[in-house]
C-alpha cells in the first residue's frame, strides 16, 4: 500500500467559526476511504479541501497542508484548474448540465481544448461504460441529460468526471438523493472503480460506509475522532463516541 494523499495539521475557519481542528490523515492509493459523522461535523468541508472547492467562499480560511503525490496543493504556484482536472468530484444531488448526454460527458475534455471528434467519441463511450450507463443511453447520446432518471443522472455525473481520467475521486454523499436500487448500482460502481482510483466518500449511511469502504474516518464537531480500517471501526472502535455514533445512539 502506498500513501496517495496526506493531510497535515489542517485547521479550517469560516470567519470566526472553526470548522476543522488539527486534522492529520493519510489516504491509501486505490482504496475507498469513507468520511462519516453527524451533520455539521466538517466532513464535507474536509472533502472539498482536496480539490480546493472552498476557495471561492469569501470567509474561508485555512492552515496546514494537503499533500498529493508529494506536493502541497495549497502552495502559491499551484494551478487550481490543473489540480481539479486530476481530481473528479461527484456531488450530493445529481447535477447534470442542461445539455445533451454527450455534451455532459465530453465537457471536461472540451474545456481542455480537445476538439478531435474520434477521440471525444471514444472517451465518452469509455466513461459511460465504466459508469455502467452505456447500454442504457447509447442510442440517446444527443438527448437532454435532464430526461434521465435520478440514478442515471448520478451515474452520468460519475461518467463526466471519469472522462478526464482523474486519479482521485471525491464523492459527497453521492447516493443521498437516490432510491435503494439506484444506490446499489452506484455502490457496485464505486467498488469496481477503486482498482484504478483513490476514492474518498462522504456518507451519512453507516451500512454504506461498511459495505464499500476500506478505511473509515469518524468526524465530530470539527475533530477527527477515529480513523482506522473499516472493519475495525465497525467491530471494535476505540473511542466511545464512535461506538455511539455507529450504533445509532446519537447523530
Amino acid at each position: 500500500m502506498k500513501t496517495k494523499i496526506e493531510a497535515k495539521n489542517i485547521d479550517v475557519f469560516y470567519g470566526d467559526f472553526q470548522a476543522l481542528r488539527n486534522i492529520n490523515m493519510q489516504f491509501e492509493e486505490n482504496a475507498v476511504t469513507a468520511l462519516i459523522g453527524p451533520s455539521g461535523c466538517g466532513k464535507s468541508t474536509y472533502l472539498r479541501l482536496f480539490n480546493r472547492m472552498n476557495d471561492y467562499i469569501d470567509s474561508f480560511n485555512m492552515n496546514g497542508e494537503i499533500v498529493i503525490d508529494g506536493k502541497n496543493i495549497y502552495e502559491k504556484n499551484v494551478l487550481v484548474d490543473e489540480l481539479r482536472k486530476g481530481i473528479g468530484m461527484v456531488f450530493q444531488k445529481p447535477n447534470p448540465f442542461p445539455k445533451s448526454i454527450f455534451e455532459n460527458v465530453s465537457y471536461g475534455l472540451k474545456i481542455q481544448g480537445i476538439k478531435d471528434k474520434d477521440f471525444l467519441n471514444r472517451r465518452v463511450r469509455k466513461a459511460l461504460e465504466q459508469s455502467a450507463l452505456w447500454d442504457e443511453v447509447k442510442n440517446d447520446l444527443d438527448k437532454s441529460a435532464l430526461a434521465l432518471s435520478g440514478g442515471q443522472q448520478q451515474r452520468l455525473c460519475i461518467a463526466r468526471t471519469l472522462a478526464v481520467e482523474p486519479k482521485i475521486l471525491l464523492m459527497d454523499e453521492p447516493t443521498s438523493a437516490l432510491d435503494p436500487i439506484a444506490t446499489a448500482k452506484v455502490e457496485e460502481l464505486i467498488h469496481q472503480l477503486k482498482e484504478k482510483y483513490t476514492i474518498i466518500i462522504v456518507t451519512h449511511n453507516m451500512q454504506q460506509a461498511s459495505r464499500i469502504s476500506d478505511f473509515t474516518a469518524f468526524f465530530y464537531m470539527g475533530d477527527l475522532i477515529e480513523y482506522d480500517k473499516t472493519d475495525t471501526i465497525f467491530t471494535k472502535p476505540k473511542n466511545e463516541r464512535t461506538q455511539n455514533y455507529i450504533t445509532g445512539r446519537f447523530g
Binding site: N51, F91, N95, Y107, I111, T161
Partner: peptide, 14 residues
Amino acid sequence: PKSLRNASYGMGAT
C-alpha cells in the same frame, strides 16, 4: 442551481 457551477469548477474549468 449552484450545483451546476460546482460541477464545472470540479472538472477544472476556469
